[in-house]
Computed example of a mutant assay.
Amino acid sequence: MSEVQLLIRDESAQYITTPKSAFKHYIELTRLHKFPLGNILIFWPSAWGIAMAATAASISPRVLAIETVAFLLGSTLLHSAACVLNDICDKDIDGQVERTKSRPLVTGAVSVSGAVRLLLVLTSASIAMLSFTNRTAALCGLVGVFPLHALYPLMKRWTWWPQAWLGLAMNWSFPVAWISITRSVDWAIVPTFFFGTVCWTIVYDTMYACQDRQDDIRTGVKSTAVLFGGYVRSILSAFAVIFVFCMAFAGYLNHQGPAFFIISCGGAALHFIMQFITWSPDIPAEGGEKFAMNHDIGYIIWGGMLLDYYLKVVA
C-alpha cells in the first residue's frame, strides 16, 4: 500500500465511529455505566442501618455481611429503576438541558416502550429482593418503591423542595435495614438518624442541581438550587450541621463507642468543611464534583461504624 493510500485511510478513520449497541444504551438509562456513582448513595443508609442495628442487637459478622450484600443488590436495582422512571417522566425537559440532552430517551436511542419494559423488570426485581427479609421490613420497603421513588420525578413540577422528597426516597432503606436486623423500630434512634440523612441528601443533591440552575430557571423546573439562590452555601452548611448532629445524637442513643464519634461523626464533619470551603456554586462543573465527594462520606461513616461494631461485638 502506498504512502498516500495510508494517509487517506488514517485521516478517514478519524471520522468513522462505531455506533453503541442497544445494550449499552439501556445500561446508560440505568446509570450502571457510572457505578458506583449515584447507586451507592442509596446503599449507604442501608449499610449504616445494618451496622448500627448489628451493634445494638449484637448480630454475628456473618449475618451482617449477608444483609449488607443483599441490601447492596436491592439498592442498586431500585436506583436503576428510579433512574429509568425519571428519564421517562423528564424526557421533554431533559432535551432542553445541556447536561442531559444526549440521554438515550431524548436522542431516540431507546424507545419509551422499551424503557417501560426495563422499568417493570427492575421494579419487579427490587420488590423480589424484599422477600429475603422479614414481613415488617418488606412492607416498609414497599413504601420506598411507592410512593417515595415513584412520585419523585413529579416533585420538580409541584414543589421547590424536590430534594427533600428525594431525601425521603434515597434514605428509606435506613429504617428498612434496621427493621430487617432487629424486627422492630426504635422510635428514638431511627427517626433521628433518618431525618439527618434527609438533610444530607438535600446537601448533595442541591449541589448537583446547581449544575443545571440556569437551565432550570429558563425551563421553569423547581429545585432547592434555584430556591436558595445566593444563600445556597450557607443554607446547605446548616443542613450539613443538622445531619452530623442527628448522627451523633442517634449514636448516643444507640450507645455507640469512640470509633463512631471520632471517625463517623468527626470524619463527616471535616469532609463537609472541606467541601464547602472549596465549592463555588456558580461554577456548574463543581456541583458535579462535590456531589461525587459525598460518596466518600459514606465510606468514612461506615468505616467508623464497622470499627465500633468490631470493638463492641466481635473483639
Rank of each mutant, 00 (worst) to 15 (best):
M1R: 09
S2M: 04
R9Q: 14
R9Y: 02
D10R: 12
S12A: 15
K20V: 03
R31G: 03
R31L: 04
L32N: 10
H33M: 02
K34R: 15
F35P: 13
F35L: 08
G38S: 15
I40Q: 07
L41T: 10
P45Q: 08
A47K: 00
W48E: 05
W48F: 12
M52K: 11
T55I: 03
A57W: 13
A57S: 13
P61V: 10
I66Y: 13
T68S: 15
T68R: 03
T68H: 09
A70G: 00
F71C: 06
L77D: 05
S80W: 07
S80V: 06
A82H: 12
A82R: 07
C83R: 09
L85K: 02
L85P: 00
C89Q: 11
D90E: 13
D94K: 06
G95A: 02
T100R: 06
G108D: 02
V116Q: 10
R117Y: 06
L118S: 01
L119Q: 07
L119W: 07
T123D: 00
S124C: 10
M129R: 00
M129Y: 08
L130P: 05
F132M: 13
N134C: 05
R135C: 04
T136N: 01
A137G: 05
A138K: 04
L139N: 14
P147G: 02
L148P: 01
A150G: 04
Y152K: 09
Y152L: 11
P153C: 02
P153V: 07
W160T: 09
W160Y: 14
P162C: 14
L166E: 03
A169L: 09
N171T: 12
W172M: 08
F174W: 12
V176T: 11
W178R: 03
W178M: 07
I179L: 09
I181R: 06
S184A: 11
S184W: 12
S184T: 14
V185K: 07
V185H: 05
A188R: 11
V190R: 04
P191M: 12
F194W: 15
F195N: 09
G196D: 05
T197L: 02
V198H: 09
V203N: 07
Y204G: 02
M207L: 11
Y208W: 09
Y208R: 08
D216S: 12
I217S: 13
I217G: 06
G220H: 09
V221R: 06
T224R: 11
G229L: 15
V232G: 06
I235R: 14
S237W: 01
A240H: 07
A240N: 04
V241H: 10
C246E: 07
C246W: 08
A250P: 09
G251E: 14
N254S: 15
N254Q: 11
N254K: 03
H255Y: 03
Q256T: 06
I263Y: 02
G267P: 15
A268V: 14
A268W: 02
L270G: 15
I273W: 05
M274V: 02
M274R: 14
Q275Y: 00
F276D: 04
D282C: 10
F291A: 08
F291W: 07
F291V: 06
M293H: 11
N294D: 13
D296C: 00
Y299V: 12
W302Q: 05
M305C: 03
Y309E: 10
Y310R: 01
V313K: 05
V314W: 04
A315V: 08
A315G: 00
